[in-house]
Design a protein around this nucleic acid. Structure first.
Length: 283
DNA sequence: CACCATGTTCCTTG
DNA sequence: CCAAGGAACATGGT
């Protein structure tokens, strides 16, 4: 379920549910998701520890753990393509693709991941390589402009570079370029300053409005309820209402552009789909 | 059967 | 050495 907004919404949901909960036991069902940490080391460090703080960095979740002696250490999570994390009653059945289960006493903290691309590990090295937070103070127009000048890659591909800016994924890269009216094929270094400013603004608006929307829907990550096809859960009516106006171009190939009515196109860049309106995004 | 999928890493090629 | 492109990872949906 991953891109910055969905991770942010998840973090806000999980933080109060996990705060001060102690880990009584751990079950690792797929060791690849804790790599490069070993199962033995993972269990040794975490059994008896408690969750304290929870934060987000790019698409990563940063759990602060506290040992009985008061020392703290970080636990790093990533949802990959299909990961979900939630707290559910201990007697609830575990999902088919449960990757890790933490016994919190009356409840379990479950990390479920169909494709097992996600991570829940003690290795924090991935965090160090991340660029600035797009919604934070470090992501200035000056920084963005300088960084883009050094790249010949198409702007859509460059936006997925987590060292440029952290948290943009395949969906919101297309969405932000649509909002800014910029062609995804334009080489990064070819963007003019007005375009860079528009894109900078579009990125921040796209992400923050997605966070806002995600925060308004009733989210039940644990329930065996409907999902919206990607990230969220709720009743049929809730999901339909939520889904309706969520994305403006992504996955809309052949459908009319919401702004001008011409057909949305799908192209492949860097082996991944890009969606755009050839008429609104000709710059 | 074919192709597609929210992400990251590793390998090859130029 | 660097950038770019692609495959791999693993499972499911259409």
């Amino acid at each position: 379920m991953p891109e910055l907004p969905e991770v942010e919404v998840l973090v806000r949901h999980l933080a109060p549910a996990l705060a001060n909960r102690k880990i009584e036991g751990i079950e690792i069902k797929r060791s690849r998701i804790i790599a490069p940490t070993s199962v033995v080391e993972f269990s040794r460090r975490l059994r008896g520890a408690a969750f304290t703080q929870l934060a987000r960095r790019g698409k990563y979740l940063l759990f602060e753990m506290k040992q009985p002696d008061g020392k703290t250490f970080p636990l790093v999570g990533h949802l990959g393509m299909t990961g979900r994390m939630y707290v559910s009653p201990r007697n609830a059945p575990l999902p088919k693709h449960a990757a890790a289960v933490f016994n919190l006493g009356a409840e379990n903290f479950v990390f479920e991941d169909t494709r097992y691309f996600g991570r829940l590990t003690l290795d924090t090295s991935a965090i160090d390589a991340l660029g600035p937070e797009p919604l934070g103070d470090g992501f200035t127009i000056e920084y963005f402009s300088q960084a883009l000048q050094r790249s010949t890659q198409p702007i859509k591909v460059k936006l997925l570079d987590q060292q440029l800016v952290a948290g943009i994924g395949n969906i919101y890269a297309s969405e932000a370029l649509f909002r800014a009216g910029i062609s995804p094929r334009l080489a990064a270094r070819r963007l003019k300053l007005p375009q860079i400013e528009r894109l900078w603004q579009a990125l921040r608006e796209t992400l923050s409005s997605a966070i806002k929307r995600g925060s308004t829907i009733r989210v039940d990550y644990s329930g065996a309820v409907l999902r919206d096809g990607l990230f969220y859960f709720g009743t049929a009516a809730e999901v339909e209402k939520f889904y309706e106006k969520r994305l403006q171009v992504y996955d809309r190939a052949g459908k009319p552009c919401v702004r001008c009515g011409s057909a949305v196109k799908r192209i492949v860049q860097g082996a991944r789909s890009t969606f755009y309106c050839p008429k609104c995004q000709c710059g």
